[in-house]
Design a protein around this nucleic acid. Structure first.
Lengths: 160, 160
DNA sequence: TCTGTTCACGTTATACTATAACACAAGATT
DNA sequence: AATCTTGTGTTATAGTATAACGTGAACAGA
């Protein structure tokens, strides 16, 4: 997995292509291990999402998916995204209607997203403490937590 | 403000009409106090949103806004919602693309939403602890929090 | 009171996000 | 090979949200 600290925002300069390659390799293995088929199309979508430092909308992905000719239908992208999300390789940001690759796939983790309003980059804050406190306080209200959506906007250290 | 415990899910039986009336009264005063104009249209949208125990989409609100004749344009609803959200009278749930009235408007509060996947009702968990833990852990990652979106789905005490 | 400005709303059009339904082909299973 | 499941293409449509422009009402200051 990538060499930069995964909880922090990526360095201005780092070999992102290497990150992408690593991620793709990991995805390949993880899918093989799970008996899931990482097809050409799915791989391409993952590559596009992983290649971007900022979350991409489905139609952004669609645009990058091919030469200006031969435009595919949006559902193609959504289908690939569904698969990738199921495999834990991509996350959906509901507050942005956008998608971002997960650079810590495989490690089961609580996830909260930190979204910089300046540079638009997103980091994953994998705080078990946040997850637990939410579950605890919800529980006090008699609520059993199934899934947490935590998306925090603000300003990252590079943009202060 | 309403008589039921605001952090819990509403009772099966409670005089919701009274809640709505109280909310409307409060809104009236709060807007007057702020020099904000709670027009007929905005009041109607608020009444509709407040009258529902489950979050409503903008187009749901639009449908209820008037007699089957004379359909207004969606932007009418969105404009009213923008105003109401700005006044803290309504919240938007990004994970549902839907809107819900705030029954504790006026009290400045951290808000996390508990969304029951069974009955679809939503409660506000006003946990300062959650807010603080998120801010703290984000801060450790060098991130200054501006706004938190916390939407938790699961099952409420009535639906267990 | 007049006048200029801001604000709320109507109207039309359009952008953006996501899924349904059905056909066919590729791969896996027997 | 026959069958079954899964992935993809294709077309159409549903669902969510905003842009742009015009009009009239409300308000502020001269």
């Amino acid at each position: 997995m990538p060499s930069h600290d995964p909880t922090a925002f990526p360095d201005e300069v780092h070999d992102h292509q290497a990150c992408v390659t690593q991620l793709l390799d990991h995805a390949e293995q993880a899918c093989a291990h799970q008996g899931a088929r990482l097809t050409e199309q799915r791989r391409n979508v993952l590559k596009i999402v992983a290649g971007s430092h900022v979350p991409l909308g489905a139609y952004d992905i669609l645009e990058r998916l091919e030469l200006p000719s031969r435009r595919k239908a949006p559902i193609t992208v959504y289908r690939a995204l569904d698969f990738l999300i199921e495999q834990g390789l991509v996350h959906r940001l509901v507050s942005l209607n956008a998608f971002i690759a997960c650079f810590h796939a495989g490690l089961e983790h609580a996830t909260q997203f930190l979204i910089c309003r300046e540079c638009r980059k997103v980091a994953e804050l994998k705080s078990e403490r946040v997850q637990e406190v939410i579950a605890q306080d919800a529980s006090k209200a008699g609520f059993q937590v199934d899934h947490q959506t935590v998306e925090v906007s603000g300003i990252c250290s590079s943009c202060v």
